[in-house]
Design a protein around this nucleic acid. Structure first.
Lengths: 247, 247
DNA sequence: ACAAAAGTGTTACGGTTACACCCATGC
DNA sequence: GCATGGGTGTAACCGTAACACTTTTGT
């Protein structure tokens, strides 16, 4: 009987005392981590891609990725890989999903967990690791990627859109100080939509999580526009509760 | 230089022609799948747990789970495991997340992907595989589980709450024909809240995805209450677009 | 003076919430 | 005839969406 076979097989390998328990060994697999690195350039939502420097699929565009090492959690691995390719630390990352199609990697059975990261594209450009041929692409205009990386991006994008509507993560993509116009363009890019600037500012203000600074940014207009800053304290004092930006 | 070391290590193992590429082998790990099986008993949202029949942690309560086999995707494995423990097929399942703390399983490094499933508890009780000591527990009153299974449940619950608000998945937990009262109690259980029955029925009706039947269910009242049925066609004709039940 | 972007407030609309009584039936 | 749960509609309220003009300042 098939069902009980499976179960017994499992049990066979799990006996003895705690130190010597061991599961069956024959089905171990390679685990990879791939990172969808989002950035924002004042106009478009972008992703960082690299041109693969090795076979197979050498020369094709791909997400940045790497293999999980034995002593690491997936989070640690994702952080390590992100740092390797961007030089950045302390970056917002979130697990998206794990992709396990048997033939997703033609070389060898590999299962990959995707993480997305939100980085300030300016800060990145200063630290970018030049040894990799990495490039920013608008999400809408990205080239076809290897394996199932396109699917990963779609998942990540969906997640980002959801998160952005309920948690204050958009700021991760902007400089520390930003204008309302920048913030609005960011949300417009994330949701691929147009927003009314009066309604936008009213709604953002009502969240009560930004501090308006006295400084102005004069690079984009003669009049200059006020800078704002995300204030984690204000957000916490609202019990960090999720808001709803249902634009 | 650490960074390029990692990269070169990766490249070292990826040369030659396509058939002979091979990644390094030393970091393969065991991959498990754990299933959070949700059911609804007209009152509470429940989960199916089993008493572990083998060491370690024999006798403790746990999610149902098993190991990924080489030729399977995670989805396939989750389906297989669900079937093994419940005898059910064609069940709604969704991947929740992958858990990778290094010591999460004391026996051996094991990484586990959690899936949640929604099943009709009645149908299940007929097919339940009696060889496992499985039990339904109200989510709120479940015992402490082994490893990080409690964390998995919290993640799954969060996902379920989100999905239930935007997609027609609640019906998976009910018999094919159900009363409005049942549906309301289900949503109340999922969100742990109280709803007004008039507002509830108005909102559900406005979604235009249910068919009202001529039959009545007379088990719960003398008057009897009309039965409804989810109509996938109606849902599709609304372009399957997500609704928002923001109770 | 004029071009270019910043900044601001009000009204109409639509959806959500709150709320109470009659109905049908089995006992 | 009465107890039990089923079924229904409306009005107040609140948040969202639509909308246009004035301000500032560098050239």
């Amino acid at each position: 009987m098939r069902k009980s076979d499976k179960h017994l097989r499992f049990m066979d390998f799990a006996n003895g005392n705690a130190k010597t328990y061991q599961y069956h060994k024959e089905d171990k697999v390679l685990l990879a981590v791939d990172c969808i690195i989002f950035g924002f350039d004042e106009e478009d939502l972008k992703i960082l891609l690299i041109k693969r420097g090795f076979e197979p699929e050498m020369g094709k565009w791909s997400l940045v990725g790497g293999f999980l090492q034995k002593q690491e959690t997936l989070e640690t691995a994702a952080t390590r890989i992100l740092n390797l390719y961007t030089g950045l630390d302390n970056i917002y990352m979130e697990q998206v999903a794990t992709f396990s199609e048997v033939d997703r990697d033609p070389v060898e059975r590999t299962i990959s967990t995707a993480y997305y990261a939100l980085i300030n594209i300016e800060e990145h450009n200063q630290k970018l690791n030049k040894q990799f041929s990495a490039n920013w692409f608008s999400v809408a205009k990205a080239p076809k990627l290897i394996f199932d990386h396109d699917k990963m991006i779609q998942h990540a994008l969906k997640r980002l859109r959801n998160r952005a509507a309920t948690q204050p993560i958009g700021f991760e993509l902007l400089p520390e100080k930003f204008t309302m116009r920048q913030l609005q363009k960011l949300y417009e890019a994330i949701w691929d939509t147009q927003l009314d600037k009066r309604n936008f500012i009213n709604k953002i203000r009502s969240l009560n999580i930004l501090e308006k600074l006295d400084e102005k940014d004069k690079t984009s207009s003669r009049k200059g526009s006020f800078l704002y800053q995300f204030d984690p304290q204000k957000y916490q004092s609202e019990e960090g509760k999720p808001f709803v930006l249902n634009f």
